[in-house]
């Protein structure tokens, strides 16, 4: 819902990020991200939670799993990364456990895979989301803390901690990675546009729960609309699923090359 070009929140977020990454005397400049070893792929929905449904009976949860397995195979074949899936079969997994999987494996990148649904039958195309910030004053202060400490966020937050502040920090984890997530979204979306031959809906920001607690660059890919009968049939085909996986893989590869 939030287009990047005309979104005031995005502009504010960008300003905040820029402000906090400028070298400030007395504060250590943020260090380079540590080398990425693990990619976590999140097949959206699962189990009782089917996600969006198509007119021909296809379910979002099945398509997201199929694409995720193909993407995992591609990364493992061609890159030296460990790939962890938040689910590898048709089971319910809470959103909290999905981000915990990413954080416990010290994920370097997080890709959540979805198929879109709209009330409008004709809605179609691919889009890639990263988290939007609705930062209040209080959250801005926390953001400042996170921006200055993002590189060792993993070691600072003990996932087993019950401490309230620690829980709040986890809840805000993604805020420290908005800039990288935006870049990753751009590269992935560029490849989806090049490969799928469907409408390019661009990169957008939204307050998606799955992205909030992930402590690494994270995007949510909406490959196509399962609510659109033409695109539903594409999504259900192994050929199109492979193209989606290939496009995301290429986007990841470009992001990683740029960050080497």
């Amino acid at each position: 819902m939030k287009t990047l070009r005309i979104d005031r929140t995005a502009a504010i977020a960008a300003l905040l990020v820029a402000a906090f990454t400028l070298p400030v005397p007395g504060l250590a400049a943020p260090a380079q991200s540590p080398a990425i070893r693990t990619v976590v792929i999140d097949p959206g929905h699962g189990g009782m939670e089917t996600g969006a449904k198509g007119r021909f009976g296809n379910l979002e949860k099945d398509i997201t799993l199929a694409v995720s397995l193909k993407l995992k195979a591609l990364i493992e074949r061609d890159m030296g990364f460990e790939v962890v899936l938040t689910r590898d079969r048709d089971v319910d997994v809470s959103i909290e456990n999905r981000s915990a999987t990413a954080n416990n494996h010290k994920a370097g990148l997080f890709i959540s895979i979805h198929a879109n649904g709209a009330v409008q039958r004709k809605a179609g195309g691919s889009e890639t989301f990263f988290l939007s910030l609705n930062a209040t004053d209080e959250e801005t202060r926390r953001l400042a803390y996170l921006e200055n400490n993002s590189t060792d966020l993993q070691s600072r937050i003990d996932p087993s901690s019950d401490d309230d502040l620690m829980m709040i920090l986890w809840d805000m984890a993604q805020n420290a990675y908005i800039k990288q997530s935006s870049r990753l979204a751009e590269l992935v979306q560029g490849e989806l546009d090049a490969m799928l031959g469907t409408r390019n809906r661009g990169i957008k920001q939204a307050p998606f729960k799955i992205l909030t607690g992930v402590a690494c660059p994270a995007v949510l890919v909406e490959a196509a609309f399962i609510s659109n009968p033409d695109e539903e049939q594409k999504l259900a085909s192994a050929d199109f699923q492979t193209k989606v996986a290939e496009a995301i893989y290429r986007g990841l590869a470009r992001y990683l090359r740029a960050n080497e």
Partner: peptide
Amino acid sequence: RETLGGHVDLSRAFFPDYSL
């Protein structure tokens, strides 16, 4: 509630978005 259908985070208050 966490979300309506698995996507949008309902734990925080929403500002309006007139961009679309």
